[in-house]
Amino acid sequence: MNAASPLPYVENNRFLQGVDVALVRELRERGRTISVKKASTVYRLAEANNGLYLVVSGSVRLAIPNQSGRELVLLHVNEGEWFGELACTDMLKRAQNAIAVVDSVLWHLPAPAIEQLTARHPIFWKFIAQIQSDHLRRFISYLGCLSEPTICRTIHLLVCNAQDSSRGKVVRLPQEEMAMVLGVTRQTASRCLQELERGNMIKRGYKEIWILSLESLQKKYQEASEAG
Score class of each variant (00 low, 15 high):
M1P: 06
A4L: 12
A4S: 15
A4G: 15
S5P: 07
L7Q: 11
Y9S: 11
E11D: 12
N12C: 09
N12T: 02
V19Y: 07
D20I: 02
D20W: 04
L23F: 07
V24E: 06
E26H: 06
E26K: 02
R30I: 04
G31D: 08
T33H: 09
T33Q: 08
I34L: 11
I34K: 04
S35K: 04
V36R: 01
V36K: 02
K37I: 02
A39E: 12
S40R: 02
T41D: 15
T41W: 13
V42C: 13
Y43Q: 02
Y43L: 05
R44K: 07
A46E: 06
E47T: 03
E47Q: 09
A48C: 10
A48F: 09
L54P: 11
V56D: 08
S57C: 12
S57H: 08
S59P: 05
S59A: 14
S59I: 00
V60M: 04
V60I: 07
R61T: 05
L62S: 03
A63M: 01
I64L: 14
Q67M: 14
S68Q: 15
R70D: 15
N78G: 15
N78K: 02
N78Y: 03
E79D: 12
G80N: 07
E81C: 12
G84I: 00
D90K: 02
A95C: 04
A98T: 00
I99F: 09
I99R: 02
V102H: 03
V105G: 10
W107D: 03
P110F: 05
P112S: 11
A113M: 06
Q116R: 11
Q116F: 12
T118M: 10
R120P: 15
P122D: 05
P122C: 10
F124K: 00
K126N: 13
F127H: 01
F127C: 04
I128S: 10
I128R: 01
S133Q: 03
S133L: 07
H135V: 05
L136N: 05
L136Y: 07
F139G: 06
F139V: 08
L143M: 05
L143Y: 03
L146R: 06
L146A: 11
S147R: 04
E148N: 11
C152H: 03
C152N: 02
R153V: 11
R153A: 13
T154M: 12
T154D: 06
L157M: 03
L157F: 04
L158H: 04
N161Y: 08
S165F: 09
S165L: 04
S165P: 05
S166C: 14
R167C: 15
R167Y: 14
R167E: 13
K169V: 04
V171Q: 04
V171S: 09
L173H: 00
L173E: 00
P174V: 00
Q175M: 08
Q175K: 03
M180R: 05
V181G: 12
L182G: 08
T185M: 09
T185S: 15
Q187T: 08
T188H: 13
R191C: 10
R191M: 09
L193Q: 01
E195H: 08
G199A: 14
M201N: 03
I202K: 02
R204M: 08
E208F: 13
W210T: 07
I211V: 10
L214S: 13
S216I: 00
Q218F: 14
Q218P: 08
K219M: 14
K219S: 15
K219V: 12
K220P: 09
Y221L: 11
Q222G: 13
S225V: 10
E226G: 15
A227M: 06
G228H: 07
